[in-house]
C-alpha cells in the first residue's frame, strides 16, 4: 500500500497536525512500509467472523442516578493554558 504525499496531507488535516515537507516525505515512506505489512491480514478469510471490540463479555452497565459533588470550577480550570471568568479562553472564532 503506497501512501502518497497528498494522502498524507489529507490525513494530517483530519488529525489536526502540521507536518513539514520533510515530515510529509518521511510519513509517506514509513506509513507505506507499515501499511504494506498490514496487508498480511488479507491472507485470512474472515467471512462470517464477528469483530471483537471488547474482550470480556459485559452487557450495558448502568448505575443509580445519584447526585454527587462535581469537580469544583477552580480545579477544573487549574490546568487551562488560558482562562477568564471561569471559562476556557480560545482564539476568537466568530467575527
Amino acid at each position: 500500500m503506497k501512501i502518497s504525499i497528498e494522502q498524507v496531507e489529507h490525513v494530517a488535516k483530519l488529525a489536526r497536525l502540521h507536518l513539514s515537507e520533510e515530515e510529509k516525505q518521511e510519513m509517506s515512506e514509513k506509513l507505506s512500509q507499515i501499511l504494506t505489512y498490514m496487508d498480511k491480514l488479507n491472507e485470512l478469510n474472515t467471512e462470517g467472523i464477528l469483530p471483537t471490540s471488547h474482550v470480556v463479555e459485559i452487557k450495558n452497565v448502568f448505575r443509580e442516578d445519584k447526585v454527587e459533588p462535581s469537580l469544583p470550577e477552580d480545579q477544573a480550570l487549574q490546568n487551562a493554558p488560558d482562562r477568564v471568568n471561569g471559562y476556557f479562553r480560545v482564539p476568537r472564532v466568530i467575527e
Binding site: 501499511l35 498490514m38 491480514l41 488479507n42 485470512l44 474472515t46 467472523i49 464477528l50 469483530p51 471483537t52 471490540s53
Partner: peptide, 11 residues
Amino acid sequence: YYLKAQKVRTL
C-alpha cells in the same frame, strides 16, 4: 483495515 483487524482479533 480497522474492521478487518477487529475480526482477526476474534480469531
